[in-house]
Nucleic acid binder design. Structure first.
Lengths: 117, 117
DNA sequence: CCCATATATATGATCAAGCGTATGTAATGC
DNA sequence: GCATTACATACGCTTGATCATATATATGGG
């Protein structure tokens, strides 16, 4: 079932989901605890929104050990990626999007960094 | 109050509103009866959605005689226009968006055409 | 097997979205 | 003033979104 405008824009309409997507767009993939830390939200809230994005076909997930990594779905249509790109540029200087990337980079003990450095 | 990602994407998430916006993007401005006819929906439904778009600052309206003409708000930020452009291209061949433009052009007695031709 | 960590889901409550029908308002012409 | 046309809004209803808290599941290490 292809991605509809309704399902994409409904996903982007919630700031929590949009923040996650814009973070994933910058990094190759992110686990739940990284997103939880970067956004400063509680884990069940992040997990529920990620489940919605997964069910809509907007993100893909991959389990590695204890961690589940999320990334933009590799088969996302080009127009959806363009919408994300335009949005990322449009909100680059706005809260809370602007601070999410720095909060992520300042996170201690990031799983990927710990085991693969 | 500037347009937020939340208010824009929430507006685009409803197919009725998105169809109206993509039609307005192609024409200079459209009155309610033109949108009602093009979409094949009842008038109060169109009117309620247009009110939401107006309150969100996404469209502007202008009364001329009996008719109220709606257009994309002239102060819409560039990134919002870009999102609309990408979306219009992405769904150009999909129902119901593809047929809306032709349904509009085949409408008899369009107000603008009647009085100004 | 038991425990700790990471993530997912269930629960119950609150709040907003969207709908069709009915009615209100605004402009025009007679 | 009255009727007509165009548009807006109120009402009652149903459905769905989001949340915080609590609990379940999964993996890896002792």
């Amino acid at each position: 079932m292809p991605l509809t405008t309704e399902s994409l824009f409904r996903a982007l309409a919630d700031p929590t989901r949009l923040r996650c997507l814009l973070l994933m767009r910058g990094e190759s993939e992110l686990c739940v605890c990284e997103l939880t830390h970067a956004l400063g939200e509680i884990q069940p809230k992040i997990s529920r929104h990620l489940a919605q994005l997964r069910e809509a076909g907007i993100v893909a997930d991959r389990r590695q050990g204890l961690w589940v990594y999320y990334r933009l779905h590799p088969e996302l249509p080009a127009w959806a990626l363009e919408v994300l790109r335009i949005t990322a540029e449009g909100v680059a200087n706005q809260a809370p999007f602007a601070t999410d990337h720095t909060a992520l980079r300042e996170m201690p003990n990031r799983p990927g960094a710990v085991c693969c450095a």
